[in-house]
């Protein structure tokens, strides 16, 4: 992944929800580009549209209007199967509530997205899972079930799952929202480290302290980008 290469390009993105006879404009004319290797945070008040934006970035939702290019793919008009394939290969998700599958072991949870890919043999999967778990320091818990782990450990496993397939971008939705300050700090440090190693990260967060660990802060209000500014390096290191 070379820096400064545009990884994500959103042009005039609109998202409208139709419920009964009510139209809700969740996103209006969003223009946003994310370069490879960038670490950006998206913030804004509840209901401003940041999670909707993250869903669109992660191909979990479709746009009503506008163009979306992800790593060279025009993805706005893809069907569900094509979106699933690209999502699996290009995107790694980290959720606020971890979203690990309780009936799969740590190892199996991390392996899960790789089992959806044709280019990974079982040996490849084992290797990638091992590396990812070692990276988040959870290899020793490989055979445990999520219920046997603390919240922080579960989120580290979620991070391992997000990075195991070497995606183009990691999308993190309030990754520390369900954690105490100590575990939150550990997870944020992990993201910092991933970024230092070249990962592209896009994080939605309420927490100003977490937001400021990114390189760039995008602020959203009422479905519109109201600010998109770089963050001073000194703050990042705090």
């Amino acid at each position: 992944m070379s820096n400064q290469q545009t990884l994500i390009e959103l042009n005039s993105i609109q998202k409208v929800f139709f419920t009964d006879e009510v139209e809700t404009h969740a996103l209006s004319n969003i223009e946003l580009s994310i370069n490879a290797g960038e670490y950006i945070s998206i913030s804004g008040p509840s209901g401003c549209g940041k999670s909707t934006l993250l869903s669109i970035l992660g191909l979990l939702d479709t746009v009503t209007n506008g163009q979306y290019q992800l790593n060279g793919h025009q993805v706005a008009s893809l069907n569900a199967t094509q979106r699933a394939r690209i999502r699996n290969k290009e995107v790694g998700f980290i959720f606020q509530s971890f979203n690990l599958i309780s009936d799969l072991t740590v190892e199996e949870n991390v392996a899960l997205p790789l089992t959806y890919r044709d280019d990974f043999s079982s040996q490849d999967i084992d290797k990638a899972v091992k590396e990812a778990l070692e990276k988040v320091d959870m290899a020793h818990r490989a055979n445990h079930f999520p219920s046997q782990l603390s919240g922080g450990q579960q989120q580290r496993v979620a991070v391992a799952r997000a990075i195991a397939g070497n995606p183009s971008i990691i999308l993190a939705d309030e990754p520390t929202g369900n954690l105490d300050s100590k575990n939150a700090e550990a997870v944020m440090s992990l993201l910092d480290e991933l970024h230092r190693e070249g990962a592209t990260i896009c994080m939605v967060t309420h927490d100003p302290r977490s937001a400021k660990r990114a390189q760039r802060l995008v602020e959203i209000l009422d479905g519109k980008v109201i600010a998109d500014n770089p963050i001073a390096r000194g703050v990042q290191a705090a």
Binding site: G58, L60, T81, A84, N88, F93, N99, I101, R161
Partner: peptide, 12 residues
């Protein structure tokens, strides 16, 4: 669980 699988790119 299905939603998580969808998010992880599970084909239909």
């Amino acid at each position: 669980e299905t939603a998580i699988r969808v998010a992880l790119g599970a084909p239909q």
